[in-house]
Design a protein around this nucleic acid. Structure first.
Length: 249
DNA sequence: CCCTGATTCGC
DNA sequence: GCGAATCAGG
């Protein structure tokens, strides 16, 4: 195979698009990875994030680099490659975030008179409930752990009776919307442990469906968790550039 | 070992 | 100009 204009064009675009020499060589049938690299350099398409770092600092490391007549004005290799970011997709392992400040769910506007419209079951009905002039709604700052647990704020700590850790995790499902969700403590071998949301977020919880027997997840999430991985060589850059017209083969 | 890109050098 | 061989790092 020779380097036709079209093939050179494809090479150039893929190279600049971040494809590896192997991928390019595979795309351009009939050439080796070395051929691609060699051609790329001859075309002047040098310098891309290479795993091999050229020793340049003045610490002197001539070594095996140029055994022949060196003294070449080595062009300063400026790396300016965008490098397509491989989307991490599922990430979200149940790893607690460091610390996140959130305002604690203050117990609703305190001093309000509850005008109940229709309390059919209430025993002490006729008594209009007057909320106590509760605490001056001090904005308590708490950190939130996984599963919606609230950590005690320093001021809330009980007297350290025993040499206990300064803070304890307090299971808290204060909000109704958290009540029926699977928190960390609800996990067992029978419920799906697929995380929903992100650790640290107030509504972070787990799937909780019945597991696919033998797996930590339900059937649906097993589908997400266990996917056949193609060999590198057979992978295509996700949404790559439409190189000079994608050639179908 | 696998991968990567860089470089050399005979053709 | 070409590319296999080799090198060097991850």
């Amino acid at each position: 195979m020779s380097w036709t204009d079209e093939r050179i064009d494809t090479l150039r675009k893929m190279w600049e698009g971040g494809s590896t020499a192997s991928q390019i060589a595979e795309e351009l049938t009939g050439v080796s990875r070395n051929a691609v690299i060699g051609k790329a350099h001859r075309l002047g398409l040098q310098s891309r994030p290479s795993p091999v770092k050229p020793n340049e600092p003045g610490a002197a490391k001539p070594a095996a680099a140029a055994p022949t007549a060196a003294a070449e004005p080595v062009a300063p290799k400026a790396a300016a490659a965008p490098a397509p970011a491989p989307a991490p997709v599922v990430a979200a392992a149940p790893v607690p975030k460091p610390i996140e400040r959130v305002a604690a769910p203050t117990p609703a506007p305190a001093a309000t008179v509850e005008v109940d419209e229709d309390e059919d079951d209430d025993d002490a009905s006729d008594t209009p409930v007057v909320a106590a002039p509760a605490a001056p709604a001090a904005p308590i700052m708490r950190s939130v752990g996984p599963g919606g647990f609230l950590r005690q704020a320093p001021g809330e700590q009980q007297a350290p009776i025993t040499p206990a850790p300064p803070r304890r995790l307090v299971p808290a499902k204060p909000s109704p919307e958290m009540a029926d969700k699977t928190s960390l403590l609800d996990l067992n071998d029978k419920v799906c442990k697929w995380p929903l949301g992100h650790p640290g977020e107030p509504d972070f919880h787990f799937c909780g469906d019945k597991v696919n027997p033998g797996f930590p997840y339900c059937v649906a999430h097993c589908g997400h968790a266990y996917q056949a991985q193609l060999p590198r060589r057979d992978r295509r850059p996700p949404p790559p550039l439409p190189f000079g017209g994608a050639r179908a083969r």
